[in-house]
Structures are given as structure tokens and as C-alpha cells.
Amino acid sequence: MFEHCPIFWGMGLFDDAQKTAGRARYTAAQGIRSAWYGAQYAIAKRRSAGFNRPGEPAFKPTNPVDTKELRASYFRLFAKDRANIEAGLYPAPEDFRLVDLPKAVKRARHFMEDVEDVDRRRVARDGAEVRDRLDGHNRYPAYYRQNFHYQTDGWLSDESAKLYDHQVEALFTGSADAMRRAALAEIARELKGRDQREVRLMDLACGTGRFLRETMRAFPRLQASGLDLSPNYAERARMQVAPWPQVDIIEGLAEALPLEDASLDVVVSIYLFHELPEKARRDVMAEVSRVLKPGGVFIIADSLQFKDNEKLDGILEYFPEGFHEPYYKAYLGWDFAAPMQEAGFALERTEIAFLTKVNVWRKHAGGAGDGE
């Protein structure tokens, strides 16, 4: 009966006005991001030699890219992101404050300056500079000692850590953070009705801590940690999560987690598996199963694979041609189901977010390999 009272009409109108204003702010901010990073990508592409190498035929994907679907999928990503924000799954992103503009311009300038070096490595198919520099260094596995994406210093310098997030956003024309937030939505669903202080979460291969920071903004009392093998990226991650003193950043291998058995409730992995050889993927799955409690959840956000959206298969074919991704081609057709089941997981949910797929895997209540 209260819905007929004028004061409740006013509250409803106020809520509608707030939603409208929030949508307008979000649309404006994401529009600026898309234009900002899209322009940088376009300039970088013009300055580079393209995907083709001297003396080689032009690369043509088996499946031509459906540009209409690419554009439509891009806009669906942001519509879903905004819907998740309105549903209260996570807060609106912190974006494009005027006070941050000088830093943004500096990062853009640095990105453009580095394009020439990246392009030189790409055309020459040279992704081994890091390996040469670390020859005989046993801290890092062989697959890790490479210039992934042809980026300067691979994962192993402060300069690389400073530039990485900007490079990724430029590559995906401002959509990378929104794709990552699709995994944040799954964390929110997992935490619904639970006391954050009693939940232990790890961001596996946390990189610079960008996603972990967004997780803590959404769930500030969470008992969280991040793990990364790069000391440079781990140090930057510590800076990102400094406002939350309970968050710990650990340096180590995803295949040999320095954690006790059944010590975590949630593990999330963002863009890790496509950069691992098959044996390492299986080892990571086994380790995550070991450290998760029975009934715990493993959220994997990674690149689309073939047939996830067949109209976009062509763009997946392009990616390893233009960038140094030594394990990506094998990843595109790799079936997660059997090794995940062997490790004791069952698939609960899949969400497609533009060029990212988020799978939610639940560890069997009886532990790994019980088949229940």
C-alpha cells in the first residue's frame, strides 16, 4: 500500500534520476577511455610494420573477422558492465580524473616511444632478449624468460611494470578493465551473504595488482593476497593495494604455491593460462585444487577460444601473428574440461565478455578426483 504514498513516488523518481545520472557518467567516462586508447592504438598501428614480415605473404585468417559482431560485442561488454554496477556487484570504476591527466599523458608518451622497439622485435620474430639476459638464472622457468607481446624487458623490469596496463588498454581500445570486471562480478556472486573477513582469496599471477585493487575497492574487508613471479610487477602490486594493510603480495610460481593445503576459499586467474605451456597449465590446476578448500571456487578469466564466438575466431588467429604469444595457438583449441575434472573441479558457469571468457569452476566437496 505504501507504493501509493507520494513520498515513495518521490523516492522512486530520485532512484531513477540517480540511475540516469550514473549511466550518463559511465557512458561519458567509457567513451573518453575508448577514444583515448583507441587513438593511441591507431597511431601505434600506423607507425608499425603491420602483421606481415618482409618476404612473407600477407597473413589471412581462416575465418575472416566479422567487424559488425566485433563492434556489437564491444558494446555488449560495456552494457553488461554498467548493469553489474547498477546491480551492486561492484562499484563504478575510478576513471579519468583531471588530476591524473599529466600521468596519463606521460604514460601515453612512453607507450608511443616504446612502439618502435616492440615493432622491431615483432618483425624480426625476436622474443628471446630476456632469455639471453637471464641465461643460467634458475629462478624463472624457461617458458617465462621471453618477451611476451614483444614488450621491452618482458615481465622483468620496473619500466615494463609501469607501462604494462597502459599497453593492454591501448591494444584492446579501452576495454581491458571492463573485461576483467566480468571476473569481479563472479567474485561478487560467490561472496553474496558471506562475511568478507572470513573469506580468503588469491589473485593468481596478479601482475601489477590492477585487478586486485578493484577487488579490494569492492570488498575492502576481504582477506586477500596476490602472487606473481616478477619481483618488479609484485612491487607495483604492493603499491596498488597499499590502502588495504591485510593484503599480502607474494613472489612465487603458480605451479608451486607457497601455501598450505585447503587454505583458500577463492582463487581468481586473469589472462594466465594462454601464456603457459600445457604441462604448466595442468600443474597450476593441481596446485589450485590443493590450496582450495573443498567447495571452493576457481574463477578463470582468459582469452576466448575457438568456437566461443565463431564470428570472432578470425581476430583470435591474428593475435599470435602480431604479438609474441608462444603458447596461444595451442591454447585456442585446448579443452579445459578433462584436466580440470581430473584436478577435482566441475564447471558451474561461463560468461563471455567481448574477447574474454570467464569460467567458474567449483572444487568438489570431497576434494580432487572424487568424481562427485
Rank of each mutant, 00 (worst) to 15 (best):
A72V: 05
H324L: 04
V199H: 06
G295I: 15
A353D: 05
E169T: 05
P231V: 02
G10M: 02
A301N: 13
G38Y: 07
D132T: 14
Y331D: 01
G333D: 15
A87P: 03
Y164K: 08
H274N: 09
A142M: 11
V360C: 06
L316G: 00
L222F: 09
A237P: 01
S303R: 02
N359F: 03
I250G: 03
G314F: 03
D117W: 08
Y150F: 14
V266R: 02
Q151C: 05
R25A: 11
V267M: 06
D177T: 07
T173V: 11
S289Y: 08
R122C: 01
R180H: 07
R33L: 06
A205M: 02
A234V: 04
S73M: 13
E214T: 04
S34T: 04
V105Q: 00
A21N: 10
S34I: 00
R23C: 11
A49P: 00
G38P: 09
A142V: 14
G314S: 05
L276P: 00
L259N: 08
P57E: 11
W244D: 05
R217W: 14
W334Y: 11
V105Y: 02
E342G: 13
V199I: 15
E287Q: 12
R180S: 09
P231T: 09
Y327V: 02
E287F: 06
Q40A: 10
A24Y: 10
N63A: 11
P141M: 13
E321Y: 03
K106P: 00
D158A: 15
R53Y: 03
S48W: 06
D153N: 14
L253F: 12
A142Y: 12
A21E: 07
L312V: 10
Q305L: 10
Y74E: 04
Y271I: 06
D117S: 13
R125P: 05
D203R: 00
